[in-house]
Design a protein around this nucleic acid. Sequence first.
DNA 1: GCGACAG
DNA 2: ATCTTGTCGC
Length: 227
Amino acid sequence: MDLPCLHGWRLTGREAVALQRELAEKVVLADGLPRPVRTVAGVDVSYERNGDSFFAAVVVLELPDFKLIEEASATGRMSFPYVPGLLSFRELPVVLDAFSALRTVPDAVLVDGQGIAHPRRFGIACHLGLWTGLPTVGCAKSRLCGSHLPPAPHKGDWVPLLLDGEAVGAVLTSRRGVRPLYISPGHRTDLPSALRLVQSCLGSYRLPEPTRLAHLLSNRLRLQARN
DNA sequence: GCGACAG
DNA sequence: ATCTTGTCGC
């Protein structure tokens, strides 16, 4: 994919916040997913322990059998600290590099982090969606903001995630007895379609297959980069 | 002022 | 995110 480059971002936290407020207005929260969704990408980033380098991995799977279509990766250097609410400014540069190495254009992307379940409604899934133009869904392992009741402990059960009285996401039990996942639309998806997509990607693990495999790949890259 | 806080 | 062995439980 041809994508704009984000290296060269030299923003202060305050500038990043202002940029998020601007970009949040460009996010499209209407369902733009094809029916049926055939290919789903998953993306994840792995960090080097001491160092300043990290590894991004993207995998593209075919539904409904999770057949691996393509994988791509990239490595980069940290240029922005981890600040809750500003994750995309840290991870997006290397993530976009991985996407530019991809030949397949997936129908949708599952991102490891929040979508609009974010203080300024602009989590990393929104940012990635805006930059790639692809439908994206945020699929985080823990909560950034918002409140909710505990979902029932059975696979597929969920409760709304409320922020300022608005349902910005869903708290989903992805597998029996595990901590729930925080699902929210990123770009070109709405909550029902985002939730349906994640549910169609659930296998036998807590994480949906696309992000689970991307996590494995980025981890593998980091470990073999040591030797 | 005090907690909360994706990865 | 990452550092870490065994261990308790479905």
